[in-house]
Amino acid sequence: MVIEDQNKDIEQLIRDLARKLLKEKEVDVILGYTKGTIPLTSLPIVIDKVEDVDKLIWNNLCYINLAKYLVPRIPTLMNEEGQKLKVGIVSKGCIGRALIHLSVEHQIDLENIKIIGIPCNGIINRKKIEDEIGEREIFEISVSGDNIIIKGEDLEQTLPFNEYLNDLCKTCQVKSPPSIENICVGECLENPVIEDDFSDMTEFDSKTPEEKWEYIKNLLDTCTRCYACREVCPMCYCNLCFVDQNQPVWFGKTTAYSDIFTFHLIRAMHMAGRCVGCGACSSVCPMGIDLNLINRSLEKIAKERFNFTSGIDPEALPPMMAFDMEDDQEFMMEED
């Protein structure tokens, strides 16, 4: 089936389920996507009336991880009496993973939500499109058949869909959310088995430490520390992020090289065994920095050392949360 038809089916699935859940009062509100106001974007939307269900859409620009809107730091969806609303959340695979991991970290109560599972067919990488189009302004972007059609001022271009996807969508093995009984509706993965060979990492891993350093240095060179990556990340839910703490001030607030590095490397540490690979951070970066390789490295280490993939099993303890005497100790230095 061509991408265009898949999108129509997914959109229909979302609307049918949303209508059903609202009608049967299974949920109070639906959290989903609607059309963005500018090209290459989509917007999150909260629907509380059956009439509005048709505002819900699905396309390949729905990059926001909606789980972010359920973490406590964001004002919780509440009714006038101050009670938490029951939320139906449109979930592609990585949103489902985020929800499961957030429940492991006690941030959300899965009992209180309904996961509307959809089979995600990939998210278009904005950076790749912009690299292709250059400075020219885009008016409209759509998918036709298996191609992306871009229209703009003096511009009409057709690009093959598969080549302009996010890199992590190409390796993604969890297109639909992992199934949880009584919580998931729609299309979900029963007992997902992740068999990731991390072949996309081979090139990066074969680099010498100096080459890796050079790569990361170039990658982060343009970072302005706007923290868009942090704000959009479902796993960044601290009350007060370490970059904002001033007792003590752990590191400088400037965009000096060392400060940018400290920010990204500490954030990477905080993502270890937690990143669910939704790619929202890269999608929102105004400077087009793709953190995919850093995030994939973390996922690879968690898988290889601790046989853990985040957001798959609500019962499994993440490696940074568990204490096990049998853990791999190879990083320890031997006594002479």
Binding site: P72, R73, E105, H106, Q107, Y237, C238, N239, L240, Q245, L317, M320, M321, A322, F323
Partner: peptide, 10 residues
Amino acid sequence: RCIGCGMCVE
């Protein structure tokens, strides 16, 4: 500052 993620508990 605490967000109650429970990491320390385990």
